[in-house]
Computed example of a mutant assay.
Amino acid sequence: MTASPTAQTYQAAYWNEAGGQAWVELQGLMDGLNKSVEEAVVETAFPGAGKAVVDIGCGAGATTLAMARRLGAGGEALGVDVSQPLLELARGRAEREGLANARFALGDAQTLDIGEGRFDAAMSRYGVMFFSDFDAAFANIRRGVKAGGKLAFACWRSPADNPLAAVPTKAAAHLLPPLPKPDPTAPGRFAFADPARVQGILERSGWSQIAIDRLDAPTPISLEDLTTLSLRMGPIAAALRDADATTAAKVREAVVKALEPHVENGIIPMVAGCWMVTARA
């Protein structure tokens, strides 16, 4: 279950540079789109008021802040991420909201020492599919959770369960250099599509009482916003980095044309096809 050693380095570089900066600029859009998944994760992971929770791959902090509010002043929510720009945004949001019980740490949860048996629960919204060594990462997270403590995370199911995800890329492919062929076993968005794989990783890393349930979360979005996300994050964004203005305009036109048939009453009624995974330390 160990990926290329370069995977960890690539993820850190991406989220501290182009990917992280794009998310900072699109934070409101990202939070709004993923609100239903955020609520499901926080509800599932919540260990009780006054407890401690670690949020893996917290990004701009939406899930950490939501859990901090739920835990109350006597609790602690620690968000962990590899992206300095996103954590700076998260810290600013916590400060503005006066959430002193929300804290953030820079580091890779695969190796970062978060303390032994310190947390009552660990959670993640889309933050656990990018480790270079999944077994090592989940073993490290388990060390940070008290005996009997809960793990709860949302991850994507297969591309077939999320058909709109491929529409922009397919529409733009003829205008761009060949895009890398996705490896379903490599760290990435759909790395946990196979529930048997997830089960095996968690079992080998010491978790028990594992449950993997379908989560179909409504994520309605406007045509304009989905076009923006498609062009600013993911494979198209990487391919456009060195493209000229004419090519960029043609790509945008192709993406809009491909997404237009999916608009209903002014909105694309997208649904995130996920797994909600739970386990005990």
Rank of each mutant, 00 (worst) to 15 (best):
C274T: 04
L65S: 08
D81M: 01
D133P: 14
F130L: 11
E264Y: 00
T247P: 11
P159L: 04
P5H: 07
A60I: 02
A160G: 00
V42K: 01
L229S: 09
L29G: 02
C155Y: 00
E76M: 09
A45H: 07
Y14G: 02
M233G: 01
L240G: 02
D133Y: 10
A68H: 02
A254Q: 08
R197Q: 10
V37P: 03
G59C: 00
H174R: 12
P47G: 09
A147L: 10
R96E: 14
V271P: 02
A238C: 01
R204V: 08
R214K: 06
T63V: 03
F104A: 11
R96F: 00
G19Y: 01
A122C: 13
L179G: 12
G48P: 14
T185Q: 14
Q110C: 11
F119V: 02
E76S: 12
E224M: 07
L231Y: 13
L226N: 11
L226M: 15
D81P: 01
P177S: 05
W15R: 03
D161V: 03
P195I: 07
A3D: 15
A237Y: 09
V54P: 01
D213F: 03
A62Q: 13
V256C: 08
G50V: 00
E224C: 08
I267E: 09
K150D: 10
C155E: 00
N162L: 03
P47L: 06
R157H: 07
A272F: 14
M233I: 15
L179W: 12
